[in-house]
Simulated scan of single mutants.
Amino acid sequence: MSTTYFFTGFPGFLAANIVKNIAIQNNEAQFKLLIHPSQMDKADKAVDRLLTDGLLHREQFELLEGDITQPNLGLHEITLESLRDTVNYVFHLAAIYDLAVPKDFAYKVNVIGTGHVNDWVLTLNNLRRYIYFSTAYVSGERKGRVLETELQMGQTFKNHYESTKYEAEVLVQQIRSQVPTTIIRPGVVMGNSQTGATIKFDGPYFAMRFLDKFAAFPIPYVGKGEATLNLVPVDYIVNATSYLAHAEVAENKVYHLTDPSPYPVREAYALICRNLIGKEPSWTVPASFISSALSIPSFRRWTSVEKETIAYFNHPADYDTTQAAKDLEGSGVSCPDFADYIQIAVSFYKEHRHDPDKMIPVR
């Protein structure tokens, strides 16, 4: 009997890559992909791309129109009945990832949506694992060492993305005693370390967009840059998640899929400058000055940089990866060094920086 995987968040970057990875490893697997009505066309094209090498077949993939913000995921009872006995693995990745997202929208998708997925997961009869995608930044404003085993530590948050992902993980942790669960907390996701490929230029790519605007001038460091910048390439997240989702040792554990040896912001920023514009930063501007400037809508839109990004260049949190390192031992999966793939990431950015589909609009 084939294994059946259910995904939310397809055709998003992480979900699409994990589906492809698992499908290549198990070309008899079946995939039930919950697709928001607005994403059906994109999802259909994404499945077509998975079939181009001839190893996979269209009948392995079923697109289910639904919505996690609705009870029963917006699915018909006949579909729910069919899934109840066939689904073996559930990957919940659907969420709002925008750092500038309004609170009500983030809460509806990230918290209420996760509650609905949890309720549905509890009805499944042959579930082997529930894999929930959280974020390392459920730690909020906490400083210092952050453990994988910690969550509710009285922390405050930098934005509604963090706070609602925190509330969502709290809900998932509440059902761990009833459902075999693995929680993944990625750092800031970069493109593929081998190809540079990514579907959008956000996160650390905002630094590249900023540098594009000021390349002709002496380049400043933004703040002291003493904190570390936790960047991880998508292939590490995909390979680690695919392994841990099926590993018995990973049942009912939480993993920081973050860089075990992150670079200080100052060093990471200098590496980006060197590879993107061929020069070093030569002076320092206070982070508060840049943050204030980005509060001006016209300046923010001109630079194409979200104000909320600046907080992640100055926050001194250290994400412990002890549990991830131990349970990935022997799998052949490890996090590449940022210095080894930044040139590839920058080259991809240069090639595609005028692609409107990859340039996240800044309000």
Rank of each mutant, 00 (worst) to 15 (best):
residue 118 N to E: 01
residue 28 E to D: 04
residue 341 Y to Q: 10
residue 33 L to F: 05
residue 328 L to H: 06
residue 77 E to S: 04
residue 336 P to W: 15
residue 356 P to W: 15
residue 243 Y to W: 15
residue 291 S to F: 15
residue 320 D to C: 14
residue 28 E to N: 12
residue 110 N to D: 05
residue 123 T to Q: 06
residue 131 I to Y: 06
residue 156 T to K: 13
residue 77 E to R: 06
residue 227 A to S: 12
residue 108 K to R: 10
residue 203 G to L: 11
residue 162 E to S: 09
residue 224 K to F: 07
residue 237 I to R: 14
residue 43 A to I: 10
residue 322 T to Y: 07
residue 198 T to A: 10
residue 278 G to C: 12
residue 82 S to P: 00
residue 307 K to R: 15
residue 82 S to A: 09
residue 216 A to C: 07
residue 207 A to Q: 09
residue 29 A to H: 03
residue 8 T to A: 09
residue 313 F to S: 03
residue 266 R to C: 02
residue 62 E to I: 04
residue 249 V to K: 15
residue 45 K to T: 00
residue 184 I to P: 06
residue 347 S to F: 01
residue 20 K to C: 00
residue 279 K to A: 08
residue 254 V to D: 01
residue 272 I to T: 10
residue 110 N to Y: 12
residue 35 I to N: 08
residue 40 M to V: 12
residue 216 A to D: 03
residue 302 W to Q: 09
residue 117 V to H: 04
residue 322 T to S: 11
residue 47 V to Y: 03
residue 86 T to F: 13
residue 360 I to M: 12
residue 7 F to Q: 00
residue 96 I to S: 08
residue 114 T to H: 13
residue 70 Q to L: 09
residue 261 S to W: 04
residue 226 E to R: 15
residue 180 P to D: 13
residue 97 Y to T: 06
residue 227 A to P: 02
residue 138 V to N: 11
residue 159 N to Y: 13
residue 170 V to N: 11
residue 146 V to F: 09
residue 128 R to A: 07
residue 11 P to Q: 15
residue 239 N to R: 01
residue 124 L to G: 00
residue 57 H to D: 01
residue 96 I to G: 01
residue 356 P to E: 14
residue 218 P to G: 14
residue 39 Q to I: 01
residue 312 Y to M: 04
residue 317 A to K: 07
residue 43 A to D: 04
residue 154 G to Q: 09
residue 194 Q to G: 05
residue 2 S to C: 06
residue 174 Q to Y: 02
residue 268 A to M: 11
residue 79 T to I: 11
residue 226 E to S: 13
residue 112 I to T: 03
residue 214 F to R: 13
residue 24 I to T: 01
residue 344 I to T: 14
residue 49 R to H: 12
residue 279 K to C: 02
residue 328 L to I: 05
residue 161 Y to A: 04
residue 312 Y to E: 01
residue 106 A to P: 03
residue 261 S to Y: 08
residue 343 Q to A: 12
residue 218 P to K: 15
residue 235 D to A: 08
residue 284 T to P: 06
residue 253 K to E: 04
residue 335 C to E: 03
residue 65 E to P: 01
